[in-house]
């Protein structure tokens, strides 16, 4: 086997674990240590405009009130 092939094998197997991600979660007793979640208005639809999101949720909420939606 040529030196080149041996070098290639060492490189391939030697670096095989370099792309390995940390698999152990570091727990802190009593507090959430998972991934962080974004705000519901921080996306393309609302572009960070919280008041626009609030208005949308309020309007949707009132749609459940048939007294106001279609009258008594």
């Amino acid at each position: 086997m040529s030196k080149f092939a041996i070098a290639l094998l060492i490189t391939v197997f030697g670096l095989s674990a370099c792309g390995d991600k940390e698999g152990v979660v570091v727990y802190k007793q009593g507090s959430y240590s998972g991934k962080t979640d974004g705000k519901p208005w921080e996306n393309a639809a609302f572009a960070g405009d919280k008041s626009k999101w609030d208005n949308s949720i309020r309007a949707r909420g009132q749609n459940q009130n048939e007294s106001k939606r279609i009258g008594d």
Partner: peptide, 14 residues
């Protein structure tokens, strides 16, 4: 589904 991020309420209620 993330309806809240679409400015909507849960579908079960809606």
């Amino acid at each position: 589904r993330n309806r809240l991020a679409e400015g909507k309420l849960p579908l079960c209620a809606e």
